[in-house]
Simulated scan of single mutants.
Amino acid sequence: MSAVPRITAGNLCLGSAPDSWGVWFAEDDRQVPYTRFLDELAEAGYSWLELGPYGYLPVEPQRLADELAARGLKVSGGTVFGALHRPEQWDEMLTHVRRVAALTAAAGAHHLVFIPPLYRDEKTGDFTEPPELTAAQWAGVGEAADRLGRILLDEYDVRLVVHPHADSHIQTQPEIERFLNATDSRWANLCLDTGHVAYGGGDNVDLIRRFGERVGYVHIKQMDPEILAQVAAEKLSFGEAVKRGVCVEPPAGVPSPADIVPELAKLDAELFVIVEQDLYPCAPDVPLPIAVRTREYLNGLGLNGDPTA
């Protein structure tokens, strides 16, 4: 088998996230301590990280800065869950988002990855609300995203990038496109999660080619097609799919990073490309070797730790 040809991807900056260490929650006894995550992230050869669930890493700016500086790490962006389709919860949601945005800005980052809430419980798989939004709710989503994005940019110099997610109302390609068409690119754009797009049956390359100017940030991951077939046949929740190993390391799974990276490299933008392999829950010794192999593979595609590398 011939080697994967190296491409020029000087506009792309590689990093990773707590998710790749099996971290989904601020606190959970099945997750590794944050100090181990940071130690192993640096050991695996990454210099950039996304903050992950608020409260997993220290939320005091100076303490966080000290922990990162001790390991030579830098922050690419913050992460937050929030509901754009629940106007009655706007004030509560905004208060939480402000906390995360303030920490993100204090860490020197300028992107906030906003993940819609799941309509199925992450642990039990139970439905917590209908899987489809009404037309009125969709209209509210666009208005809320623009309003939130403007607040974040004006007050924190942080850009809102909304993250499609399995078992959420922004999951399939039609839903992603509907969100993009309902929002203003000045205030709200897309965190392209390649694995979740594939999970929802979408075409990453098509999205990049047609909506490349709306891609503000990237999560790179791959899904096992056999388990995706089980998801469809058995109507599995995302949590159950992850337990079965739906999220796999490259070069296995879909989409192939070798197809995605060249398309991203054509975009006229500098982008963080953050590795996210959903592993919750996993044994503590599992993530590090995967993280090393993943970095080496992506380095081979031209993805490095700095856009100019």
Rank of each mutant, 00 (worst) to 15 (best):
S2W: 04
A3V: 12
A3Q: 11
R6P: 02
I7D: 03
T8W: 04
T8D: 14
A9Q: 08
N11C: 12
L12M: 13
W21K: 05
G22W: 02
D28R: 07
R30F: 05
R30H: 14
Q31S: 11
Q31N: 10
T35E: 15
R36M: 13
L41K: 00
E43I: 06
A44H: 01
Y46K: 06
W48R: 08
W48C: 10
L49R: 04
E50I: 00
L51G: 09
G55L: 03
R63S: 14
A69V: 04
R71F: 14
G72N: 07
V75A: 10
S76K: 02
S76H: 04
H85S: 13
P87M: 03
P87N: 09
Q89Y: 12
D91Y: 07
L94G: 02
R99F: 06
R99P: 07
L103H: 09
A105E: 08
A105N: 04
A106P: 06
L112Y: 04
L112K: 02
V113H: 02
I115G: 09
P116Y: 11
P116N: 03
L118H: 07
R120N: 01
K123G: 01
A136Q: 14
A136H: 09
A139K: 15
D146W: 01
D146G: 02
R147M: 08
G149R: 00
R150T: 00
I151C: 07
L160K: 03
V161C: 14
I170E: 06
I170Y: 01
Q171L: 14
T172D: 13
E175M: 15
E177I: 15
R178A: 09
F179P: 00
F179E: 00
L180E: 06
A182Y: 07
S185L: 11
A188E: 06
N189Y: 09
N189V: 13
L190I: 10
T194N: 05
T194I: 05
H196I: 05
V197D: 05
A198H: 09
Y199K: 03
G202D: 10
D203V: 03
N204Y: 05
V205N: 07
V205L: 15
R210Q: 12
V218D: 05
K221D: 12
Q222I: 05
P225R: 10
E226S: 11
A232G: 07
A233E: 15
E240M: 13
E240C: 04
K243V: 04
G245M: 11
G245E: 04
C247H: 14
C247D: 12
V248F: 03
G253A: 08
V254G: 06
P255Q: 01
P255S: 08
S256E: 06
S256Q: 13
S256H: 11
P257W: 09
I260Y: 04
P262E: 02
E263P: 12
E263H: 13
L264F: 08
K266P: 05
E270C: 11
E270D: 10
D278Q: 03
D278M: 03
V286G: 00
V286L: 14
V286H: 15
L288C: 08
I290A: 12
V292P: 04
R295Q: 10
E296Y: 07
E296H: 11
E296N: 11
Y297E: 03
N299H: 12
